[in-house]
């Protein structure tokens, strides 16, 4: 399991290889990876990249906790996450999530859960640049709803 915050870009192949090198991952029939990238627009129009701020220490432990929750809930055989911070241009890679499981549904659900809960509970804040102007991104209701979906299922269990 690995949870990292990094200014540097990442190689999807290197992260995939690291994820699958884990001994339990050798029993996995399914590997799902997700990569989030910077869009070149928002609701107001074109943007020129983003900037991400984080809480050193808390962000890493929140990411680690999220992986542990997903691993327990979906019987993952391994999971990893890398989130970049700092100034990122359009199209840059922002976040990578990888999950391994015996079967595909758990791997898909695990990756989806990690991304939904990340957007709700991990201390990272996004600013969008347009020319010389930067605006903080407001938290989206649709992100809360996505996280609530998992939390509501918790109650139903």
């Amino acid at each position: 399991m690995f949870a990292r915050v990094s200014e540097a870009d990442f190689s999807q192949q290197a992260l995939y290889d690291e994820l699958c090198a884990h001994s339990l991952a050798s029993q996995s029939g399914a590997v799902v990876t997700f990569t989030g990238r910077v869009r070149d627009y928002n609701a107001e129009g074109a943007i020129d990249g983003i900037e991400l701020e984080y809480y050193p220490g808390m962000t890493e432990s929140a990411l680690q906790q999220l992986l542990e929750q997903a691993t327990a809930r979906f019987e993952l055989t391994n999971a990893g996450i890398v989130h970049r911070v700092g100034r990122l241009p359009n199209q840059a890679q922002i976040v990578w999530v990888g999950t391994c499981a015996a079967h595909r549904q758990d791997a898909f659900n695990g990756a989806s859960y990690i991304m939904d809960m990340l957007k709700q509970s991990v201390p990272i804040w996004k600013k969008e640049w347009a020319g010389d102007t930067a605006n903080w991104v407001a938290a989206k209701g649709t992100d809360s709803e996505a996280a609530m979906r998992w939390l509501t299922e918790d109650k139903d269990d």
Binding site: G36, Y55, K119, A138
Partner: peptide, 24 residues
Amino acid sequence: TLCDGTRAVSDQDEVAFFPPVTGG
């Protein structure tokens, strides 16, 4: 660790305030 306003705190604690998160 995230908590609500009722949490008791002392001088040894590290407290942080921030807006709703927007990572990913």
